[in-house]
């Protein structure tokens, strides 16, 4: 499990979540995104294409990051959720808080 950060030509940071986003690694993701925010990045896509599962702590860190990014005038979008993860966002009503795109490419195009 790991997180990868890449910045495209338009300055959008794409964060890949490989494996899981759970209580044991959420702080690592949070710190990486906050470091990029401190470094001036304002547009973020979290790519869940390679993610097996997300627990409530992982959901919580996304809520917290989204708030912090918005406070800095930025935007956080989610992409690549499989059917189960999409259902998780719907059950928790977090689909109403986040802009969710089917693919990272769609999320990037929406900025």
């Amino acid at each position: 499990m790991s997180f990868s950060l890449t910045k495209n030509k338009s300055g959008v940071v794409v964060v890949g979540v490989d494996g899981q986003l759970i209580v044991g690694n959420r702080q690592d993701l949070k710190q990486k995104v906050l470091d990029a925010l401190d470094g001036g990045a304002r547009k973020f896509v979290i790519d869940f294409t390679k993610t097996g599962y997300i627990d409530s702590s992982g959901l919580g860190v996304l809520v917290s990051l989204s708030k912090k990014i918005r406070e800095q005038g930025g935007d956080l979008r989610l992409a690549g959720l499989n059917e189960d993860l999409q259902t998780l966002f719907e059950l928790t009503k977090l689909d109403t808080l986040f802009a969710i795109a089917k693919t990272p490419a769609e999320a990037l195009a929406a900025f």
């Binding site: 959901l59 919580g60 809520v63 998780l88 928790t92």
Partner: peptide, 21 residues
């Protein structure tokens, strides 16, 4: 219930709800 409007933007409090689902 973590899905209530006043609780939706909280970072914590979803564990039991997710588990039950």
């Amino acid at each position: 219930d973590p899905t209530l409007p006043g609780r939706l933007e909280r970072e914590d409090g979803r564990g039991l709800f997710v588990l039950r689902s």
